[in-house]
Design a protein around this nucleic acid. Structure first.
Lengths: 196, 196
DNA sequence: GTCCCTCCCTAACGAACGTTAGGTATGCTG
DNA sequence: CAGCATACCTAACGTTCGTTAGGGAGGGAC
């Protein structure tokens, strides 16, 4: 029977994601993860090669879920640049706060990861960011983006604001938050002035 | 003569800020800082009480310099909500990349800091953020902010995007970056549509 | 009943780290 | 010259952590 194995492995990974998210990677100990899982520290090595490999699995699972949320959101939205970008904002924020600890852990811990682990996660991450760049490039080529705005800079600006929410947002009305962010990103925070 | 003392203390703090920024707080060792300063690890304790107290000093110095940059930028700009916000964006980004490692270190390491250190830095940090909230609230009361946008949310959105730059921006044309960010924050990334 | 594979445990190793006690050289002070 | 404070060193202590070697219980296979 392999169900127990899968259970323990999955449980360890989920607990690790929560602790990495809450305490940071380096300050999280295998002994702490094991204790919360009702297991001894040494037993982790039956399921994983090392602490780094746990992080690697978590970062991979996290970006995978975020990407899935994005693809799903894009498919359900209007097929025009504006609707796609707004849907992407909703999907990304939804993924961070409604899809378990893996997604938020990816965003928060990625930059603290050892370079080798980081390099492996970067592959999938680049593909995800490329989707955003594609969305914004489509907005640009269809003449919807402001002339002085490059899609690459816009992507970094927007994802920076979105990902920073994990430092302050207390899960609540995510749709309202996404609406406000979409409004600010698309139309700006200020009301245009006709004269002056 | 106390010049040697001040020199070494200052040098240690600068090196520590650089290493905290590059490797993170926990992964930076006192032995590494001491080595780069041409000193032995134990000697650090002549100048500082602990590793935590070094971080505390750095975080304080960092937010102080960022705040000074902001105040300076606001004083030199037009005294209207729009100009003030644009100047603030330029000042904040300028502080992160042109005022040494302390400012960038504050932004990057703050969220990794031990809770006690974090609590002390939070006092000064709250005051800095209150300045931003004041700017945006003035924009709101003078009718320049979009109705559905709350100043508090706008501040978190904008500072999130600004602070995230330390993860990707390679010091170059900061003014151009600030211009693009200001354009996106104020007017939005999209061109308004008159019909549809 | 015997074998073997799965899954977890005990117990320890070795390294790295923050920190400290005590010593030493230097130079100013009286 | 004696005395003292400054600035740094040496050498270690104690702890924590990732990791590993080896063992054992349990159940399915034959």
């Amino acid at each position: 029977m392999t169900s127990t194995l899968i259970d323990t492995r999955t449980r360890l990974l989920g607990i690790a994601a929560e602790q990495f998210l809450a305490r940071g990677y380096v300050e999280t100990t295998l002994r702490g993860i094991a204790a919360e899982a009702g297991v001894k520290a040494g037993s982790i090595y039956y399921h994983f090669d090392s602490k780094d490999s746990m992080l690697e699995a978590i970062l991979g699972e996290g970006i995978e879920r975020i990407a899935a949320s994005l693809e799903s959101g894009l498919a359900d939205a209007g097929q025009n640049p504006l609707d796609q970008v707004v849907a992407a904002i909703h999907a990304h924020l939804g993924a961070l706060f409604e899809h378990g600890a893996f997604t938020a852990c990816h965003v928060k811990v990625f930059h603290q990861a050892p370079s080798e682990v980081k390099a492996k996660a970067t592959v999938r991450r680049d593909a995800y960011e490329a989707t955003w760049t594609r969305l914004l490039t489509e907005a640009e080529t269809s003449g919807r983006l402001r002339p002085m705005i490059e899609p690459g800079i816009a992507r970094l600006y927007l994802l920076g604001a979105l990902n920073a929410t994990i430092e302050w947002f207390t899960p609540g009305d995510i749709a309202a938050l996404a609406d406000a962010f979409a409004e600010m990103f698309v139309n700006g925070a200020f009301i245009p002035r006709w004269k002056e």
